[in-house]
Every structure is written in structure tokens, then in C-alpha cells.
Simulated scan of single mutants.
Amino acid sequence: MADVVGDLSSFSFETGLTDDEKKLLYLRARSAGLTFCGCAHAAFLCKLVHSLRSQTANRDSVASGEDGDLCVGILGLGHMGKQLLLSLLEKSGIKPSHIKISSRRPESAVKCIPAGVECFFDNRRLAAWADVLFLCCLPSHLPKVCADLRSHLAKRCLVYSFTSGVPVSRLAQLLGHNFIVKPQYDFIDGDSADVWLSCTHLTTALTDPLLIEASCPLTKSGGIFLGLNWVCAVLYSLLNICTSASLGSSDTLSLINSLLKDKWQHTAELNTRSFISASCASSLHTDEPFPWISLADAQTRDTPLLCFLSSSESMQQCISAAYKSLLQTPAKKTL
């Protein structure tokens, strides 16, 4: 059906705004861009973790269920929680039966969640079950949420926080947990930010190569920049997952490099000294796991990985290629 008011300027959103209000219209694009980037980056991380686990599924210490599939929890079903759920189902390849949601009003969520996704109100149950736990709650709810989660999170559970205004170091204190990723977005002025105005439907937008390119963590083309600290946290997450599985450092490096180099045929490669100091690397045997890395520290301090990535344009290109390839590859539909 044709839009009968499509050509009538008096029905447009901008009609009636003052000049000062029109100067703030860029916030619409920024809001849409933040939602898209947040969901796309979370889906990318889950695809990497899912792929890593699938390659080590025969190890009992990795598998949390009989099939070893990744278990993803979403705490909070507001705007961000709903958009994240759609993104993971569309892009990650994770089964609906392996996604659970804790919401204060689970009865009202029935109409907006797909079949197979379980929704309840029990933060502790969700924390004990999940391999990756997304925090999509309001900052005002965070102290109570953290009190619920504290002591119920397994060390191997990766917490990913979308809660604004709370730095990762504070979150680590509240949770008593250091396996946490907290994206920190920066904004760059420019006309390129208007690209996000096309994000009216997220699942459709996630198939747009232009938007995927604009959301790439190591580019600034979309006016929203994430940067190397987040990339370091993602790579250290993969390292910790292998460590929790008692995987030797040599096998760990081989797996992580294969996830990235499969998408970028180049000589760039991560090695032991890319992740840990030279003194630690020299004493680490190939069959010995990497030490556990505090992600809270990795996102707030200079690390060997940050130094390596900062000086390796080739590895940055490799990571960007992996990001775009993984998001542009349709997820296998599973039940």
C-alpha cells in the first residue's frame, strides 16, 4: 500500500521543530547507530566464541551442556534487550533453545520473543546457566542486579555490559568478577553519521554491507568508534575460554589465528608475546595454558596485546576483515 502522506512535508518528523531543536536531529542518527553497533558487535563476539567452542566441543571442560553449544543469557528486556535478542537470532547461529532471558515482567514478554526462547524472572538462575551473559538493565537497577548475580557467576561466564555510566572497574567490584567486557563508544563529528538513519528495522539493517562496514570497530566511517581496547577484550576473552578448557598455548594460538585468518589470507598472526609479556612468554611451555587474564584490567591498562595491535596495521586489517565476513555470512537457522 502506498504511503499517502509520504510527499507531504507537513507530516514529517521535523515539522514544527524550532531551529535550536533541529540542531539536535543528529541525535536520532546517533541513537540508531549505537543500537546497531551494540548489537552487531555483540553478535560478532558470540559468533567467535561459538566457533571457538565448536572446535573444542569434545572437551568436557568446555561444554556446558550435552551438545556443547553456547548458552547465552540476556538480563533485561527493554529496548536494547529486545534488539539484541533479534540480532543474536539473526546473526549468531545460536539456537533459540540456548538463549534465555530474565525480565522483571516475563508475562509481558510472551508476545515479543520467538518460540524456543525461555523468559523468566530469576537473575541467579540465569547467571548460573549462561556462558555469556548480557546486561541490558538500567543503571538505577544495576546495584540490585549485581547483588543478585554476585557469587552465582561461574569464572568462565563472560559478562557483557550495555549498562551506561558504569565503568568496567566498578562493575568488576560490584560483581566480584573480572571476566567482563564493557564497550566504550566515542563519537566523531561528520556527515557520515547520517548513514544510521536507514536503521529503521534492525534485522534488515544487519544484512546491509554499508552499515556493517560503518560499524566495524576499527574504522571511523560511521562516526561511532569503538577502538582497540574492545578488540583486546574480545581476543583476551577467547584466550580465557581456551585457558578454562586447559588448552595448551600452542593449540590456543592455532585456534584463535584460524578464526581470524580464515577471513584474511595474510601473514599477520598472533603469537605468545602478542598476549603476555616477553618474560612470561619465554617460560610458557607449548602444552601449558595461558594465564587467566583479567578483562577489567585489559580494558583499563596498557597490555602487550594493545601494544601489538597498535603497531600492526596488517593484524588490524585481518580483524576488520573477519568482522565484516562473519556478520555478512548468514547464520544457519537451527531450532
Results as ranks from 00 to 15, higher is better:
Asn257Arg: 03
Leu284Lys: 04
Pro209Ser: 10
Pro167Phe: 02
Pro291Tyr: 00
His79Ser: 08
Cys46Arg: 14
Ile188Cys: 10
Gly68Asp: 02
His152Cys: 00
Phe13Asp: 03
Glu213Tyr: 15
Lys220Phe: 06
Lys144Tyr: 09
Leu211Ala: 02
Ser108Glu: 12
Ser279Trp: 01
Trp196Val: 08
Ser282Phe: 03
Ser215Asp: 09
Ile276Asn: 01
Arg150Asn: 02
Leu89Phe: 04
Phe162Gly: 00
Gln184Trp: 10
Lys144Asp: 06
Ser282Thr: 02
Ile276Ser: 02
His79Leu: 10
Pro106Arg: 07
Thr200Trp: 11
Ser258Pro: 07
Ala29Gly: 14
Leu34Val: 13
Leu45Gly: 12
Gln184Glu: 08
Ser282Met: 03
Ser102Tyr: 05
Asp69Trp: 12
Pro289Met: 00
Lys182Ser: 12
Val132Tyr: 08
Phe162Ile: 02
Val72Phe: 02
Lys111Arg: 13
His152Met: 00
Leu52Gly: 01
Cys307Lys: 07
Leu27Ile: 09
Gln299Ala: 12
Val168Thr: 02
Leu284Pro: 04
Cys216Asn: 14
Ser254Ala: 06
Cys119Thr: 04
Asp148Leu: 03
Ala298Pro: 00
Ala128Tyr: 06
Thr267Gln: 13
Ile241Ala: 09
Ser151Lys: 00
Leu88Tyr: 03
His285Thr: 10
Ser108Tyr: 12
Glu14Pro: 08
Cys318Glu: 06
Ile256Asp: 01
Glu66His: 09
Glu107Phe: 07
Thr329His: 03
Pro143His: 01
Leu133Lys: 10
Asp189Val: 12
His177Ala: 12
Gly165Gln: 08
Val195His: 05
Asp3Leu: 12
Ala321Trp: 14
Phe225Met: 07
Gln184Cys: 07
Lys333Thr: 11
Leu260Trp: 13
Val166Trp: 08
Leu88Asp: 06
Leu228Asp: 14
Cys307Gln: 09
Thr18Ile: 11
Gln55Gly: 07
Lys261Ser: 15
Gln317Cys: 10
Gly33Phe: 03
Leu211Gln: 01
Ser237Phe: 05
Thr18Trp: 15
Leu238Ser: 13
Asn58Lys: 11
Leu327Arg: 04
Pro139Ser: 04
Ser246Thr: 08
Pro330Val: 04
Leu335Lys: 02
Gln299Lys: 11
Pro209Phe: 05
Lys111Leu: 13
Phe134Ala: 06
Ser249Asn: 07
Asp19Glu: 15
Gly165His: 10
Ser237Leu: 06
Lys22Pro: 05
Leu197Arg: 14
